[in-house]
């Protein structure tokens, strides 16, 4: 009986470890795919107003050689598509961090082109940190760098 319990426990731990490792590998693979794919925004301006990368605001330009940019008219008079992807991540940089920088730069670019400024969240905050609010705090801190952009 004791042997069976030990065997079952061992199998459970081994199975759990396998699932954890496979999940981690899958997550890392997804990050790599996401880091390599084009991330695109559509801004409500005619393509004639954004002829080249020189017309883009600072947040995207500041990423310099790290990214490749494509600009094209959006179909159906929906404005201009600005696509960017990471092409050179510095050796010591985590791809996830680089991806967050790109997403944030794209979001800020849309704000600047369409409204002239980046909308600030309300501050100072009136909220208190509680155990249950921690996931929301983390999500809020990373809000512009995460998501499905």
């Amino acid at each position: 009986m004791k042997k069976k319990t030990l065997l079952f426990g061992g199998l459970l731990i081994a199975g759990g470890a396998t699932v954890a490792v496979r999940s981690k590998i899958a997550a890392e693979r997804k990050t790599m795919f996401d880091a390599q794919r084009w991330h695109v925004i559509t801004v409500n301006r005619p393509a004639s107003e954004i002829a080249g990368t020189a017309d883009l605001p600072a947040p995207l330009l500041s990423l310099g050689e790290m990214i490749e940019i494509e600009i094209r008219p959006a179909p159906g008079d929906k404005g201009t598509e600005i696509a960017a992807r990471l092409i050179a991540i510095e050796a010591d940089e985590d791809p996830k961090t680089a991806l967050r920088k790109l997403r944030k730069a794209l979001r800020d670019t849309q704000w600047l082109i369409e409204t002239g400024e980046v909308l600030s969240p309300d501050k100072p905050p009136s909220t208190r940190t509680t155990l249950t609010s921690l996931p929301i705090e983390i999500a809020t801190r990373r809000a512009k760098g995460e998501g499905r952009l």
Partner: peptide, 18 residues
């Protein structure tokens, strides 16, 4: 609106877009 929500990622994860 594309520019009214300063926490876009939360709803993008839940609903696809913010």
């Amino acid at each position: 609106c594309e520019n009214g929500n300063t926490n876009p990622a939360i709803t993008e994860m839940m609903w696809g877009q913010h």
